[in-house]
Amino acid sequence: MLTEESKPVVNQRIVLREESDDWAILFDPDTSGTYGLNPVAVYIWKCLDGKNTIADIVRKLGKECKDMPDDAVNHVKAFVDELIEKGYAGYGT
């Protein structure tokens, strides 16, 4: 269960392929699966190092983003949950 104190970490097998315009693709070479990321999602992905908590990531986003919604933490958790469900990220120690 992902909480604000969870420290998610990316699956090193997954390739972050940054395209033009700050968008990116996550590519799973074992399945050929791809998953499109908008610039904010790319920023979050780069924070998934097993050291940052969800709360840390939201705080960092607050410094980088404008018009942060009040429920930003839920957006971040939903996104990271989706990554974990796909096997693209996991829970850090």
Binding site: E19, D21, G36, V40, E64, C65, H75
Partner: peptide, 26 residues
């Protein structure tokens, strides 16, 4: 491939300046 659907917006500038002819990074 699809958008994540997450609506936060980065302050990064230049996102509107891209051209359709611009090649991908690699």
């Amino acid at each position: 491939m699809r958008d994540t659907g997450h609506k936060l917006t980065l302050k990064a500038e230049g996102l509107d300046s891209c051209s359709i002819m611009k090649p991908i990074k690699t």
